[in-house]
């Protein structure tokens, strides 16, 4: 028996996705594989790249404490940035969610909008605010009496964390916001009718329900911070290197591509492991909330 419809439903999806699939195999998977292979090639100042298979680059990364320190700095900055966005972004999303319609959409635009504004422009703004010891940020903090002596922001990890937290904040607010949308709007009234005070409501009712949102936001912020380039490059300057800026240097200044490829491969592998691992953990822990 002929079956027009059924034949279509077997062939059609593959015919429709074939162009995109070929694109992705051709110019994403193959280049990535080539990069991994590149990390096993040899390189010399004068001989350039030699397509041999050696572990030299990997040994160098494993043994030279410079790389250990650099990766540790990268992840330390990413962790601090994640904590800062969670501590400030989650309450803000909650406050935002309780605003009335018009204000809610206005402030949502104000807070999420920067997500689409050039990272270079946003980081430039922080560079201007930090601007040496008498930058605007320090002047303001000192006149408010928050600090006594100026904090060095420029070319420090503190500055990087602050600027990165600003760049990543929309992701956290968005993620918590999405979790809040799934909340029954009457749930707070229900808790209140049972005699719960505002603190108890937040701690016992709201927090457990938005936790998956905070955690998935944290994964996004962490992975993007650990691989961030523009902000560390501009705020951190030439000496305070993170993984992304180091790889950039190896590729475009030192021209030691194999070593740069090894750094990039390691960064990718570490991030994939962390992201996939923590995603699986969150989904297991909060299986019922995600449903």
């Amino acid at each position: 028996m002929s079956s027009v419809a059924e034949e279509r439903s077997i062939r059609a999806p593959w015919a429709l996705t074939a162009p995109a699939l070929m694109l992705f195999v051709g110019v994403l998977l193959i280049p990535l594989a080539m990069t991994v292979m590149l990390s096993f090639h040899d390189w010399g100042q004068y001989k350039g790249i030699e397509p041999v298979f050696i572990l030299k680059n990997w040994q160098e990364i494993a043994t030279d404490p410079y790389y250990a320190e650099m990766f540790w700095r990268t992840f330390r900055i990413a962790i601090l940035t994640t904590l800062l966005t969670a501590l400030l972004g989650a309450p803000e999303a909650y406050i935002l969610n309780r605003m009335s319609g018009r204000w809610k959409s206005f402030f949502l635009l104000v807070i999420l909008g920067p997500l689409l504004i050039s990272v270079v422009a946003r980081t430039l703004g922080w560079a201007l605010l930090f601007g040496g010891n008498n930058g605007l940020a320090n002047k303001l903090l000192m006149s408010l009496g928050v600090i006594r002596s100026p904090i060095p922001f420029m070319f420090t990890e503190t500055g990087m964390v602050v600027a990165l937290a600003h760049v990543m904040m929309p992701f956290m607010v968005l993620s918590v916001w999405a979790a809040l949308q799934r909340l029954d709007p009457q749930i707070e009234n229900a808790a209140m009718s049972l005699g719960a005070g505002p603190v108890t409501i937040i701690r016992r009712i709201i927090m457990p329900q938005i936790m998956p949102g905070v955690l998935s936001g944290a994964i996004i912020v962490f992975s993007l911070s650990a691989s961030a380039f523009a902000t560390p490059a501009i705020i951190g300057g030439r000496r305070l290197k993170v993984a992304a800026t180091l790889a950039y240097d190896e590729f475009l200044n030192t021209l030691n591509w194999p070593l740069g490829a090894a750094v990039a491969t390691l960064l990718l592998a570490a991030l994939v492991l962390i992201v996939v691992g923590s995603n699986a953990m969150i989904e297991r822990r909060y299986a019922e909330v995600f449903r």
């Binding site: 994403l28 280049p31 990535l32 080539m34 990069t35 992975s223 650990a226 691989s227 380039f229 993984a243 992304a244 790889a247 950039y248 590729f251 740069g260 490829a261 990039a264 491969t265 960064l267 990718l268 991030l271």
Partner: peptide
């Protein structure tokens, strides 16, 4: 990470 994509 876009660094990795850039390199690749």
């Amino acid at each position: 990470p876009h660094v990795v994509l850039g390199i690749a």
